[in-house]
Design a protein around this nucleic acid. Structure first.
Lengths: 198, 198
DNA sequence: TGCATTTTATGACTTTAATCATAAAACGGG
DNA sequence: CCCGTTTTATGATTAAAGTCATAAAATGCA
């Protein structure tokens, strides 16, 4: 996250997106740095028969879509507003200038990318070698640490739909529904009128 | 990749590892920056029944294991020498000092992390939503661009065993063997005395 | 050069999650 | 508050990759 003051100094603009609006598309060349003011953004891929894989979900203060910006490569996924969302948008050249002139920001960018790599390392290993229960639980536990799940008297409220959990773990909705039921039976999590707590 | 001169200025040491030696283990706290002088290193996870998932393979000049170093988190995977390997090793404090005092290195680190995130984004989507043929082909094509595959008269020589391809794509050896045969039949790649070319 | 190990190979079978069908409950915009 | 949409739910069936068994070819190191 880059401070508002600094962004403004380099000519940032604000832009609003409605729920389900596309922010950028897979295959396009990156031209901007994006940082969330409010709302929620997902980055995801669709395979040939329309099945979705969610690469990540981003909230207030977080940036997304930088890797291909640094590499001059095409976006490997789409960015879509999950809710009405307001963004800071900075043209690539301005962003690069900002980085050069503010070395401390580089460290923040590094930490941010490191954090995302860490998440992907964990989920990649989960998705390729673990059964559904393990995968779902790992996602949830990671989410408690890094997504914005809130704790109340029932425990942490897992603010994802079954479909989203499936799209993040490579499982189908029905499998997620059955897996969550099984995890509840084992006492690993609670279902209180259809909402999941851990 | 950080230049030798700079590394030496900050007190780097050299160390040799034999084939199959463990460089660091999952769960340990990172204490050093590692950069390969010669040889080959893999980072991988093992699940409860010993099944391996390879997070990445690294060659001459490449560094590995930085993300948890920046985050003060435990290593999410093991690092193992695939062949006899020589490494530059720099203690964490020295590495951080190097970064602070040499802002341009930050940009290189950023580009490196961005590259690895890009690879992981692609493979994560592959592993969770595509069939074996698509996964194997995508890995191979990515490998041609980013691993050190050599081109000869038969095409690019895919310098991976079937087992390695399986461990990188979340498939079993037998499945990889059958998939590669199927891809050859379709003309997507060549098998010349058991070696794979594309 | 000989022999143990690794890699590739193939067939039979099994298991697990995907698929398909259907529906009730909950949500949300007009 | 009504009605279309989304989300959760459940059972039956299927398909695809995993598992198991076995072996030949290739590799490598002692």
């Amino acid at each position: 996250m880059i401070t508002v003051g600094l962004l403004e100094k380099y000519g940032v603009i604000k832009r609003s997106f409605d729920k389900n609006d596309i922010i950028f598309e897979e295959g396009n060349l990156p031209l901007h740095y994006y940082q969330i003011i409010s709302g929620e953004v997902k980055m995801s891929n669709y395979n040939d028969d329309g099945r979705e894989f969610i690469q990540g979900i981003f909230y207030n203060g977080q940036s997304f879509g930088e890797p291909p910006l640094f590499l001059n490569q095409k976006y490997p996924a789409n960015a879509i507003a999950v809710e009405n969302t307001e963004l800071f948008i900075l043209p690539k050249e301005n962003f690069m200038k900002l980085l050069e002139e503010n070395p401390k920001v580089s460290i923040q960018i590094i930490e941010n990318l490191a954090q995302r790599l860490y998440y992907k390392s964990i989920m990649a290993a989960e998705i390729s070698t673990h059964e559904p229960e393990h995968r779902v639980l790992k996602l949830i536990d990671h989410g408690i640490a890094y997504f914005n799940f809130q704790k109340d008297k029932n425990g942490y409220f897992i603010n994802f739909t079954r479909q989203q959990i499936g799209d993040l773990t490579g499982l189908r909705v029905e499998t997620v529904i059955r897996t969550i039921k099984a995890l509840e039976k084992k006492g690993e999590l609670k279902i209180i009128n259809r909402k999941v707590y851990r």
